[in-house]
Each structure stands twice: as structure tokens, then as C-alpha cells.
Design a protein around this nucleic acid. Structure first.
Length: 643
DNA sequence: AGACGCTGTCATAGA
DNA sequence: TATCTATGACAGCGT
């Protein structure tokens, strides 16, 4: 919207310049002095009528930075123009213009005839965007053919440069003549452009700006221009912020492309030595880059070991701090788990020593240790164990035989010799639990997997009370059902060992120990259940993480929605203000235009229209008529849209 | 006593 | 084909 305002502003300026060229004095010098002061300086000179301003050239090259490096407003304007160009390359809609302007001049009847052929010739040359030398050449070529007659003005309106300098606009003038034939007699001296292609607004404005050299305006409309320009400058700040913020919002799903785009923009901006807009863009870009860096950090954190986390990305979409801390927490957890594993591997080697030491420890303390170990496999059934009832009710029929086979195992538990339990610590002490437990590297295993060596001797110690009075109760309470079954079946391996040993070793155990079919089936069931238990824990953790991440995403999107709504309101408000100022400027320009009789144009009867190619013409406000109803409706629609 | 959350287990699909 | 993993569904248990 701010850019559209700039379009209007520039178009009006150049309209005024063009009108001055053809004889109508519309002085906007005082307005340009505040905003486009460098332009005025450039336009000074005796032969300025033939010199195209580098206004459009600078826009096409370095957006004016090389031309007016010390004009922050202009830099800002060009930066905004550049942003608009980038947006337009993406297929963004045009900014419709609704300024209708007439080129006011005097054309004699003979001129009309002379201008006919030249019109066609000039039309073929292009759109009036010739460079100065080309234009001068064209001028020299067309002048003998009456091109200057097109620019002939009335004596009272005659301006020196117009007699020859405006010939660079022969194309427009010829089109004016074509239109004159269609206009009423009262408007015979008014010329206007017949086409208003909005697609070429930028080029057209550039072409119009060529005439800026010739006529430093002298009329004052300070209050309008200054207000408009002040609004423009302030609004451009908002524009940059809006652009930056909008890019950030888009980073959710298009992080890479937007980041690349930001980098490109940053490089472009960095290439410029000065310019407030560049600085502001840098600010925005730095914000972007900082945000991107956070993503990069998160990504780096994922690459460090959590990359396989399927929902880590979801977590990263949340607030930076939270995601960062959460990620750090995951990292810390993983690090500590690895440390625990490393330490526990060493503990396996000192199981016997530890057992000897633990034998002197109070059983109650060991019980507390067991509870703190979090061995879900061991303590999940920490409640009153009723192996027979619970297992029979929950187990499938496939295990009924096993259960039947183990029928009475609850009573056999007491008779289970401690041999098997002691074997827990000796048979598979060399099992690399740290390698086998972490099949799924995305989540840390339950703590019990990290302390097998401590738990096993612990259990061995806990077997000590077996000989005591409450020994069986403690054992039944602490052992899982599978553990009890294994003990009942005289399987000399712990559940942990059965679950975590490699499949090759497991198969060797099944084959090499002479187990009965019931024992083999129980071993397979224990292994399967243990692995599935771990898988279920990981699955639930993932599910919770996903839910958490989605909740945070919802909060973030809600905040984004609120911010966008606020920006939308601000944009609408600014758009309305710009539209009003455009209307006021149009009225002012029309009030300063004169027809051949020297009378000002009635703003109610005429309107300014700025075409997409930059040509600004004065068009009459068509009255409601049957023949022109279509065009009138179009104008009305345009007016309605403008309002 | 019912709701709720946690956990273990089973069945199943897919790798 | 066997094994492993992931996940929905179900049930038991504790709060």
C-alpha cells in the first residue's frame, strides 16, 4: 500500500512536470525540494528539456542509491520500490491507478493532419522510454515533420522548452490528437492519452520523469505533499517491519526458501553503502537471521543426536526459548543416560564386589534403592502380586498353557532356589546393555535399563530375606510376573538379560542350555513382552511429545494470527489515508490546469488518470449517458474502488 | 463408586 | 521367514 502511494506520488509529480513541459504551469518545486531535492538539482540546466532525468535509470540500476546516496528518503523510496518489484515478480497484484489526466495544449487543425503520420512512426519507436541521446535524435528527426507543432502552446501558456523539448513525448501527443477528434469541441485543445496500461506503470513513470529536468516547478502545494510524504516515510517504516514480520511468519513451512531469499536480500542490501532503508532491511534481515539461527541451533541439536526424533521439529516450531530449553533438556538427558550406561558397564565388572558390600546394607535401604531405580519391568507389579489371578485374566490364551505350565509357580516361588537368581549376576554380566537397550535411539529407555548391574545384585541381596520371615513377601512384591515365571521355570536368566541380549546369543541360549519347550516358550514370551513394553513406553512418550508440540504450535499460530490481524487493520487505515490524499492532490492539480481559454479545469468535470505505463492524462468525467454508459460505469467502479 | 492416568500386554502391520 | 519396531486397543491398578 505504501508502495502504491509512492506510485501515485511519483506519477503526480511527473504529471505535473509533463504538464509544465507542454505549457501548463503546475509548480511542485516546493514539494520536490523536501522529498526529491536531488531531482531538482539534476534537472537544472539550460538544455534540460532534452535531458532525461536519471530517475528511472537509477531505479533500474541501483534503485537510486548511486544517484542520490545522501537522500535517505529517496533511498527509502527506492528500497520500497525494489521490494515491490520483488513482490511483483512473484505475481503479486498490481496497484490500480485511477488518475485521469489530460494533456492540455493547443493543437491547430493543420497540426492534426501533420501529426498523423508521425504518430504512427513514433508509436513504432517504442513507449517513449528512449534514452536521452535517442530521444534527441528522434527530436531532430521529427521536428521537421511537425513534431514540434504538437507541442505548440498558446501564447499565454507558452513555455520555452515546450516548443522543442516536449517532443520527446510525441507519442503521447499523437495519441492526444487521436483522442481530440473524439472529444467535444470545447475540449479541442485538450489532448490525452488513449490507453492506460497499468502493467507498465513503472516504465511510464520513468518516461515521464525524463521531463523532470526541464522544469523546476514553482507552484506550492506544500501542505499536501509534505503530509503525503511524511506519511509515506513513516509508513515505509511500517512497510519494512511488515515485510520482515511477514517473512518470519512464513518461515514456518518455508524456512529454507525464505532464508535463501533473506540471504539474497541481505547481500543486496549489504552491497549498498548507505541508505536508511538498507539499514532497516538489515535490521529485519538480522531478525530473520537470528530466528534462522535458532532454527539452525535446533537443527544442530537434532543432528547431534536427536535428529531422529520425529517430533523434534514440532517442538522447534514453538517459542525459541522453550524449544531451546526443551532441546537442551533432551540433550542433557541423552548425555546423562550415556554416562549412566558407561558407568554401569563398569559396574557390571564389580558386581561381585558390590554384592559383597551390599550384603552389609540394610535391606530397607536397598528397597528404597529399588524403588528409586524405576525398574518398570521389575516394579510395575509392585502392588500386591497376585500372579495367578492377574495373569490368567490378562494373558491371552496362547499363554494359558504357559500359565498352566507354571500353575502353582506362586507356591513354587518359595521353593525356587537362589541359584537362578545368583545366575542373574554371573551368566550375563558381559552383556552390553548399553548397546542392546538402545534399539530406539530417539528416546531414553526407562531408568531400569540403565542400572541392570545394580539391580541384579540388589535383587540378589533382596533374596537374602528369603531366609528371613518376610522374605517371600518382599520377593513377590518386587518381582514381575515374568520374573516369577522365569524363576518358577528355573530359567537362570533375568528378564532384563532375556530381553536385552542379542538375538544371536538368545538363540544360542535357547539351543545350548537344554531348555524344555515350555522354558523356551517362556523365554520367547519374556523377550517379546519386554521389548514390546519398551516399545510401548517409547510410543507413549512420542505421543505425548507430539501432543505437546501441537499445543505449542497452536499457541504460536494464534499469536501469529492476532499479529496479522493487527497489521491488516493498520494497512487498511493507511490505505484510506493515502486515498484521501490522492484525491486531494488530484483536485489541486486539476485546479491548476488551464484550458485554452485560460480557465481552470473543473475538478468535477475532469479527473486525472495515471496509466500503468506512466502516462498521466486528464479525462473528463463522463456523464451518465446511454452511449458511454459502459465507460462511465467503469470509471465509477474505479472511483468506488479508490474510495 | 466412578473418572482418570499410567502401565503392561496383545494383536497387527510394516520394515 | 524370523525378528524387531511401532501403534491401537484392552485391561489392571493406583489415585
Amino acid at each position: 500500500m505504501q508502495i502504491a502511494k509512492k506510485y501515485f506520488t511519483e506519477g503526480l509529480i511527473q504529471l505535473t512536470i509533463l504538464l509544465s513541459l507542454i505549457g501548463v504551469r503546475v509548480d511542485i518545486d516546493s514539494y520536490l525540494s523536501g522529498y526529491y531535492s536531488p531531482l531538482i538539482e539534476i534537472n537544472l540546466g539550460p538544455s534540460s528539456a532534452y535531458t532525461q532525468t536519471p530517475f528511472h535509470i537509477s531505479r533500474d540500476t541501483l534503485d537510486g542509491y548511486s544517484v542520490h546516496p545522501k537522500c535517505p528518503e529517496l533511498d527509502h523510496f527506492f528500497a520500497s520500490r525494489r521490494l515491490l518489484d520483488e513482490v511483483r515478480t512473484l505475481g503479486s497484484p498490481r496497484f490500480p491507478t485511477q488518475l485521469n489526466a489530460w494533456l492540455v495544449h493547443q493543437v491547430s487543425a493543420s497540426d492534426k493532419a501533420d501529426c498523423g503520420p508521425s504518430s504512427s512512426n513514433n508509436t513504432d519507436t517504442g513507449s517513449g522510454l528512449e534514452r536521452p541521446e535517442d530521444q534527441a535524435r528522434d527530436d531532430s528527426e521529427h521536428l521537421p515533420h511537425g513534431g514540434h507543432e504538437v507541442c505548440q502552446t498558446t501564447p499565454e501558456l507558452g513555455q520555452g522548452p515546450c516548443s522543442s523539448g516536449a517532443c520527446g513525448f510525441l507519442k503521447e501527443e499523437n495519441e492526444v490528437q487521436v483522442k481530440e477528434e473524439e472529444e467535444p469541441a470545447a475540449l479541442a485543445q485538450l489532448a490525452h492519452s488513449s490507453t492506460l496500461e497499468q502493467e507498465s506503470l513503472l516504465e511510464g513513470i520513468a518516461a515521464l520523469s525524463d521531463a523532470a529536468h526541464h522544469h523546476p516547478p514553482t507552484i506550492d502545494i506544500e501542505q499536501h505533499w509534505s503530509s503525503l510524504l511524511s506519511l509515506s516515510v513513516t509508513d515505509l517504516d511500517d512497510l519494512d517491519s511488515l515485510v520482515a514480520d511477514t517473512d518470519i511468519t512464513s518461515a514456518i513451512s518455508q524456512d529454507v526458501s525464505l532464508h535463501d531469499a533473506m540471504v539474497t536480500s541481505a547481500s543486496i542490501a549489504a552491497g549498498r553503502a548507505e541508505g536508511r532503508s538498507a539499514t532497516q532491511q538489515h535490521r529485519g534481515l538480522f531478525r530473520q537471521e537470528s530466528t534462522g539461527s535458532l532454527h539452525s541451533d535446533a537443527s544442530a541439536g537434532m543432528a547431534l543426536g536427536l535428529a531422529s526424533l520425529p517430533f523434534a521439529s514440532v517442538c522447534n516450531l514453538t517459542g525459541n526459548v522453550s524449544s531451546h530449553s526443551a532441546l537442551g533438556g533432551c540433550l542433557d538427558e541423552a548425555v546423562f543416560d550415556q554416562i549412566n550406561q558407561l558407568g554401569l558397564e563398569g559396574l557390571d565388572t564389580i558386581d561381585t564386589q558390590l554384592m559383597g558390600c551390599l550384603q552389609n546394607i540394610d535391606p530397607q535401604v536397598l528397597e528404597d534403592l529399588d524403588s528409586d531405580s524405576g525398574l518398570s519391568l521389575e516394579s510395575s507389579s509392585g502392588g500386591p502380586v497376585s500372579p495367578g489371578s492377574s495373569e490368567m485374566s490378562s494373558s491371552s490364551s496362547s499363554y494359558c498353557e504357559d500359565e498352566c505350565g507354571a500353575t502353582g509357580y506362586s507356591s513354587e516361588v518359595d521353593s525356587v532356589p537362589s541359584k537362578g537368581i545368583m545366575d542373574y549376576t554371573t551368566t550375563w554380566s558381559s552383556v552390553d546393555l548399553s548397546e542392546n537397550v538402545w534399539h530406539d535411539h530417539r528416546y531414553s529407555s526407562p531408568p531400569f535399563f540403565n542400572q541392570p548391574s545394580v539391580t541384579l545384585p540388589h535383587k540378589g541381596i533382596k533374596e537374602e530375606p528369603l531366609s528371613d520371615d518376610d522374605g517371600p513377601k518382599l520377593e513377590e512384591r518386587d518381582l514381575s510376573r515374568d520374573e516369577l515365571r522365569a524363576r518358577a521355570m528355573c530359567i537362570p536368566f533375568s528378564v532384563l538379560q532375556i530381553v536385552n541380549m542379542p538375538v544371536e546369543e538368545f538363540l544360542e541360549v535357547l539351543d545350548g542350555h537344554g531348555f524344555s519347550p515350555e522354558q523356551v516358550a517362556l523365554l520367547r514370551d519374556i523377550r517379546r513382552r519386554g521389548k514390546n513394553k519398551l516399545a510401548a513406553q517409547n510410543c507413549r512418550k512420542r505421543k505425548l511429545d507430539a501432543i505437546t508440540g501441537l499445543q505449542e504450535e497452536v499457541e504460536r499460530l494464534q499469536a501469529q494470527r492476532d499479529r496479522l490481524l493487527r497489521e491488516k487493520q493498520l494497512t487498511a487505515k493507511t490505505m484510506g489515508a493515502v486515498g484521501q490524499q490522492i484525491e486531494q492532490l488530484t483536485r489541486d492539480v486539476l485546479a491548476r490546469l488551464r484550458d485554452d481559454s485560460g480557465q481552470p479545469l473543473n475538478p468535477e468535470r475532469f479527473t486525472l488518470q495515471c496509466g500503468a505505463n506512466g502516462r498521466v492524462v486528464v479525462q473528463p468525467v463522463r456523464r451518465p449517458a446511454v452511449s458511454t454508459s459502459t465507460g462511465n460505469k467503469t470509471d465509477k467502479r474505479k472511483k468506488e474502488k479508490k474510495q
